[in-house]
Design a protein around this nucleic acid. Structure first.
Length: 498
RNA sequence: CGGGACGUAGCCUAGCGGCUAAGGCGCCAGCUUUGGGAGCUGGAUAUCGGGGGUUCGAAUCCCCCCGUCCCGACCA
């Protein structure tokens, strides 16, 4: 098998690609910009999806499915929406051997087709709220793609809700942002900052966009989920009116919210190391791999012993892989299962069989311990629970260590380094490509006046953007904008981003 | 969409105008081994990314196209 994982310190982008490919999570496709998700990668998505779906249902949402083909004219009904998406649309012009009367857009998102139906389904305040979600694929023709992080076609869920009042819709937007925040932290071990996007970064057609932002190991930010307050924009575009409690007609208030297979990329980039994938136990296809270590003369004994270990773990509800292959050495298997990101490795050899113990090794820390076979199930359970907490805390500590408060433009310049680019080690060694952006900076937290000009200047000078304005940090915004010195209106998180 | 690098077996690489395209890893068979990526023997696998051109002769030189990666522009 491949043992080629480029160290992060040499080339972070290549490290990420090496992990995705070598851990067999995904592969390239014959169509540019698309990806094939392989079983080990899809298993992560499935677990993530099932848990998120559970949380949606817990908060009162139902699943539905809308078609992937959308009449071009639908998109054109909301001006900002079509303007935002038109550069990345895939359009079907021919079907059934004939040219279509009206081109069909392959959905880049489903607001328009969904609102065209909401118009039929909503008449009275008694029909509200409408809380629907769909799991689907969408297509956005991207110029520059990266496995999981930005692909032409990707999988996601999109929630679309309709409400009686503005307050109710805004509350829904906040509720779903909180669902994402908790899900990211509890289940994916991704510490995130929840907040509102600047106008420049908001969704095409939204009144306000909120996001959760995670920090990758190269200190760049990655948007891991979004929740939009759409106001009455789509209701007006699709003429969705309802009869209010006092007999008036009013347009409904809307939200939409989504998270995608990009989350898989975020998980890989947050937790993994130079040996391969590291996964939160919650997401791992197998939580434990049991590796028997035998010689020909003790093979039967060891396998029987190891099988007892496997049965004990399975009986306690663990997802277990049992690697009985006899053509590879234990060392090879250790490396292989580490690359695959299995959280716990249990080694059972002749010495262990004699002592009634096993060797247990944590993937995240490499820590080894000897455990009695009688305790294996209990110890595995507590160790996995600990790992789930530790991964979050490790990521949080990394983020906090790379977050700095800034008060002036000078601070920002110093933090991010003006146009600073480092040659990767490969280039220094005389090989290959131009420099990749050095892992400088991180999150800068500072005050902002709210002007588009300041934001644009920062992006032009340093490629740094406002990630969001943290919802829980908008009290006591007193002082001046760290960019222009005008009175500040918001506290913002700045970063380079994916 | 612009700039750069690359494309030879599943993967990595050699060959850079001349005979039957070479090696390592992996794969298959057998033997042997197994506590951190074992060893021996035998075997299979290449329209040299695709098309066109130059030439007596092209993996090798030229043109066009396609793809991947990196940088930029664009973008959630």
């Amino acid at each position: 098998m491949a043992d080629k994982i480029t160290p992060r310190s040499v080339d972070y982008s290549q490290w990420y690609i090496d992990i995705v490919l070598n851990a067999k999570l995904a592969d390239y496709s014959p169509v540019k910009g698309c990806m094939v998700i392989r079983p080990r990668g899809f298993a992560i998505w499935e677990r993530l999806r099932d848990e998120l779906d559970r949380r949606f249902k817990e908060t009162g949402h139902q699943n539905a499915y809308f078609p992937m083909f959308i009449p071009m004219s639908f998109l054109e009904k909301e001006a900002e929406h079509v303007e935002g998406f038109s550069p990345e649309l895939a359009v079907v012009t021919h079907a059934g051997g004939e040219e279509l009367d009206e081109p069909l857009v392959v959905r880049p998102t489903s607001e328009t087709i969904i609102w065209s139906k909401y118009r039929d389904w909503i008449q009275s305040w008694r029909d509200l709220p409408l809380l629907y979600n769909q799991w689907a694929n969408v297509v956005r023709w991207e110029k520059r793609t990266r496995l999981f992080l930005r692909t032409t076609e990707f999988l996601w869920q999109e929630g679309h809700t309709a409400h009686e009042t503005q307050e109710e819709a805004e509350a829904e937007t906040a509720t779903m942002l909180e669902v994402y925040r908790r899900f990211a932290e509890e289940y994916l071990c991704l510490p995130v900052i929840a907040g509102r996007k600047s106008d420049a970064e908001k969704f095409a057609g939204a009144v306000a966009t909120y996001s959760i932002e995670a920090m990758m190991q190269d200190k760049k930010a990655l948007q891991a989920g979004t929740s939009h307050f759409l106001g009455q924009n789509f209701a007006k575009a699709f003429d969705v009116q309802f009869q209010t409690r006092d007999g008036q007609l009013d347009h409904v208030w809307a939200t939409s919210w989504g998270a995608s297979t990009r989350l898989v990329g975020a998980i890989i980039m947050t937790h993994s190391d130079d040996k391969g994938l590291v996964l939160p136990p919650s997401l791992a296809q197998e939580e434990v791999v049991v590796i028997p270590i035998f010689k020909n003369d003790n093979k039967a004994t060891v396998l029987e012993y190891a099988n007892r270990v496997v049965q004990s773990l399975k009986a306690s509800g663990r997802r277990v892989a049992f690697d009985t292959d006899d053509s590879n050495t234990p060392g090879w298997k250790f490396a292989e299962w580490e690359m695959r990101g299995v959280p716990l490795r249990v080694e059972a050899g002749p010495k262990d069989a004699a002592n009634g113990t096993v060797v247990m090794v944590r993937r995240d820390t490499g820590e080894k311990s000897f455990v009695s076979i009688d305790d294996i199930a209990a110890v595995a359970a507590t160790t996995l629970a600990t790992m789930q907490k530790d991964l979050l805390e490790k990521a949080r500590a990394f983020r906090d260590a790379n977050t700095r408060d800034v008060v002036s433009y000078t601070d920002l310049l110093e933090f991010y380094g003006k146009e600073k680019k480092a040659k990767p080690q490969a280039a220094i060694d005389g090989e290959s490509h131009e420099g990749t952006a050095e892992a400088t900076g991180g999150y800068a937290r500072g005050l902002w006046c709210g002007s588009r000009e300041c934001e644009a200047k920062l992006k032009a000078d340093l490629k740094v953007t406002i990630r969001n304005m943290p919802s829980d940090q908008q009290d006591h915004v007193e002082g001046v904008c760290c960019l222009c010195g005008a009175p500040a209106r918001h506290r913002a998180i700045f970063a380079r981003s994916y």
